[in-house]
């Protein structure tokens, strides 16, 4: 589970800038999840945006018994439900089972296949870079990124000091970033 408690505590004190940290951290994931639900890129962005705004306004209601992402994901899904019921459309699309289905045919359903193609290329490139990492670094980063373990948990699993976990993860990210820069892909984020 992601631990955002320090950032959330700042948001609870009304720090809008701290909320920005959460938006950047979860925006891609949230838009991706909503897109699976509504199959419309622009609408997914709008719903995610509204969900973030609602989350900020109701941050006091976040009890911390689930991760921030789980919480905002529920808000986004409820926002989408409201949207579809208000518009009295999407009765077929509005099926929560779809949420769990794999997104195998993204480009076919997209209004913007070119952008999605770029995204697909990036995912491939970054996963290739990940596969090329040294074994120890890759396994540590994998436990963090795919299994969601904390540094402490990883240290226990790998039977090494927490400082080693910290430096392996950092090193892994640096290597991936270097690969990206070498391929000239980093520019894409900020263009």
């Amino acid at each position: 589970m992601e631990n955002d408690i320090n950032v959330i505590n700042l948001v609870r004190k009304g720090d809008v800038k701290a909320f920005d940290i959460l938006v950047i951290k979860y925006q891609d994931r949230l838009v991706y999840s909503v897109f699976k639900f509504c199959k419309d890129l622009e609408l997914s962005e709008d719903i995610a945006q509204e969900a973030f705004v609602k989350a900020f306004k109701n941050i006091e209601k976040f009890r911390g018994d689930s991760s921030f992402y789980t919480w905002i994901y529920r808000i986004a899904i409820n926002t989408a439900k409201n949207y579809f019921s208000n518009k009295a459309r999407g009765a077929e699309t509005y099926n929560e089972d779809i949420l769990d289905s794999a997104l195998s045919d993204i480009s076919l359903n997209s209004d913007n296949p070119e952008t999605l193609l770029v995204a697909e290329e990036m995912k491939d490139a970054i996963n290739q870079a990940f596969q090329n990492l040294p074994d120890e670094i890759r396994s540590t980063l994998s436990l963090r990124e795919y299994d969601g373990l904390s540094y402490e948990e990883i240290a226990k699993v790998q039977n090494c000091p927490i400082g080693t976990v910290r430096s392996r993860i950092f090193k892994g990210r640096e290597l991936i970033n270097e690969t990206f820069s070498r391929l000239g892909l980093s520019k894409t984020w900020s263009n």
Partner: peptide, 18 residues
């Protein structure tokens, strides 16, 4: 964060910044 999203295959829009 974009790197992470790409690594987790959750990236749809490379330029997205809400």
């Amino acid at each position: 964060n974009k790197h992470r999203s790409a690594l987790r295959r959750e990236l749809l829009l490379p330029h997205l910044d809400l």
